[in-house]
């Protein structure tokens, strides 16, 4: 008997001699661990988007599972979280994890259940991210659009921000708005030192007091501090442009200043 005859008998006529349907569309993806192995060493949005399954359920399954100990894996997961948020009409609820909403373009992500996730909303250009609770460092770093609301945040929040807005409902760490070239930031309670460092444009509004070196070496933009205590020592140190408004200042205010303006607010 020929091999074909053997197979025909084995499959009782159910096997096709010619392929009529595509057997697969893209590679199988069996889990997050499997997916990250397909992504190169330096993951990019376009690469992850290309490899990601088109089925929303499968895509959602990928971000629900999988270990994320390595930074590479965290970045891939971050891209996937943004992809899911873009594709679904309702807000995406996720546990707060590093790189959530990475390069988000549209959609809404609500992060809950974690403490101090870093790099949330990094490089986002649209959409909304709500962090229920504490965000870690580098919140909204290099963001160009969209908006972030967080309960509080660590250091380097909204670093190199170019657009969009950020609201911190509680305290913010050091270096808020470092090197900003646009966008608006509101921190409703106390902020750490060096807020608005090297800022070129944009606005920062602080509801509480500010730490030392407020607006250090800033070149443009506006910083407003509403707290009763005002800004600590050396506000506006070596500033070259922009404006700082505060109720009061510590010692050595405006030391080495070559431009810009420092105002003392009297009203509420």
């Amino acid at each position: 008997m020929s091999l074909k005859g053997f197979m025909k008998e084995a499959y009782k006529g159910k096997a096709r001699e010619k392929r009529r349907l595509k057997t697969r569309d893209g590679d199988f993806v069996l889990g997050f661990e499997d997916f990250v192995q397909k992504v190169g060493d330096r993951p990019t949005w376009s690469e992850v988007e290309k490899l990601a399954p088109s089925d929303e359920k499968l895509l959602f399954g990928l971000i629900k599972t999988g270990p994320r100990a390595k930074k590479h894996d965290q970045i891939v997961w971050g891209f996937l979280s943004s992809l899911v948020a873009e594709r679904i009409p309702e807000p995406l609820m996720l546990p707060a994890m590093d790189f959530a909403g990475l390069e988000l373009r549209k959609g809404t992500i609500i992060l809950d259940g974690g403490r101090g996730a870093h790099h949330v909303g990094e490089k986002m250009s649209g959409g909304r991210i709500v962090v229920k609770g504490e965000a870690g460092d580098y919140l909204g770093q290099e963001m160009a659009g969209g908006g972030i609301v967080a309960g509080s945040c660590g250091d380097y929040a909204f670093r190199k921000m170019r657009g969009g807005w950020g609201v911190v409902l509680g305290r913010a760490g050091d270096y808020l708005g470092l090197g900003n070239r646009g966008g608006r930031i509101v921190a409703k309670e106390r902020v750490g030192s060096r807020t608005g460092w090297l800022m070129e444009s944009g606005r920062i509004c602080v509801g509480g007091d500010a730490g030392s070196y407020l607006g250090i070496m800033m070149k443009g933009g506006r910083v407003l501090v509403k707290g009763e205590g005002g800004a600590a020592a050396r506000a506006g140190w070596r500033m070259r442009g922009g404006a700082i408004y505060a109720r009061g200042y510590g010692p050595e205010v405006g030391a080495g200043k070559v431009g810009g303006k420092i105002y003392r607010r009297r009203g509420p």
Partner: peptide, 9 residues
């Protein structure tokens, strides 16, 4: 089934 048939043919 399909791949076995291809190989058999």
């Amino acid at each position: 089934g399909d791949m076995n048939m291809i190989f058999s043919r």
